[in-house]
Simulated assay, not measured.
Amino acid sequence: MLDMIIYTAVVATLIIVVGLFGSGEGEGLGREMNKFELGKVSYVMVLVWIAVSWQVFSIGSVGLIFEVSALFSNVISTVGLPIVPVLAVICFHDSMSGIKVISMVLAIWGFVSYVYQHYLDDRESKTPTQV
């Protein structure tokens, strides 16, 4: 399964790189890198660590699917949705917009619904059935 994730990521990366340089947008990377406030090395490190984090996320999601269930993997991904905007506000002093608030509320609502449904299913399984 890891091979499938890795090969998909490699093919997607190659297609994106060909499209980036084929369209001429690749020439703007140098300007963007020079304008990055923290420097060129930080710019490259940000891109590298974003790629590494996405790979860890992909492998972790597939691991959850195999070990627990696809639904649980989706729930864990949904729980992570409100964490990212909160960390962006705290770490990068980003503004909290209405879209971020709505996405956080929907993510929390989805997680609470999942937990409540499991609570109801567990409660129902413990009640004796009348024959």
Results as ranks from 00 to 15, higher is better:
Tyr43His: 11
Ala88Asp: 04
Gln55Asp: 03
Leu47Glu: 12
Glu67Pro: 07
Asp122Tyr: 12
Pro85Ser: 06
Leu106Ala: 14
Phe21Cys: 08
Tyr7Gln: 05
Val18Cys: 13
Ile6Gly: 08
Met96Ala: 15
Val46Pro: 04
Val56Asp: 04
Gly60Cys: 00
Phe21Thr: 09
Val79Gln: 09
Thr129Phe: 14
Ala51Ile: 00
Leu47His: 15
Glu32Pro: 01
Met104Leu: 07
Thr127Trp: 09
Met45Lys: 00
Ser23Lys: 03
Val105His: 01
Glu32Ser: 02
Met45Ala: 02
Tyr116Cys: 06
Ser58Gly: 06
His118Arg: 08
Gly60Asp: 04
Asn34Met: 13
Val62Phe: 13
Ile83His: 02
Gly60Thr: 03
Gly24Arg: 01
Val115Ile: 13
Ile99Leu: 15
Gly22Pro: 07
Thr129Asn: 09
Glu37Leu: 04
Leu64Thr: 11
Leu87Met: 15
Arg123Tyr: 15
Ile65Tyr: 01
Asp3Phe: 08
Thr8Tyr: 02
Val41Met: 15
Val89Ile: 14
Phe57Met: 06
Gly26Thr: 11
Ala88Leu: 13
Ala51Tyr: 04
Ser69Asp: 12
Ser23Asp: 05
Asn74Glu: 12
Ser77Gln: 02
Ser53His: 12
Val46His: 05
Ile5Val: 14
Gln55Ser: 13
Phe36Gly: 01
Val11Thr: 06
Ser103Ile: 12
Gln55Met: 15
Ser73Lys: 02
His93Trp: 04
Leu14Ser: 07
Leu47Cys: 09
Ala107Ile: 15
Ala107Gly: 15
Val10Asp: 00
Lys35Cys: 02
Gly28Phe: 02
Gln55His: 12
Ile83Trp: 07
Pro128Asn: 03
Leu47Thr: 06
Met45Ile: 00
Thr127Tyr: 11
Leu38Met: 05
Asp94Tyr: 00
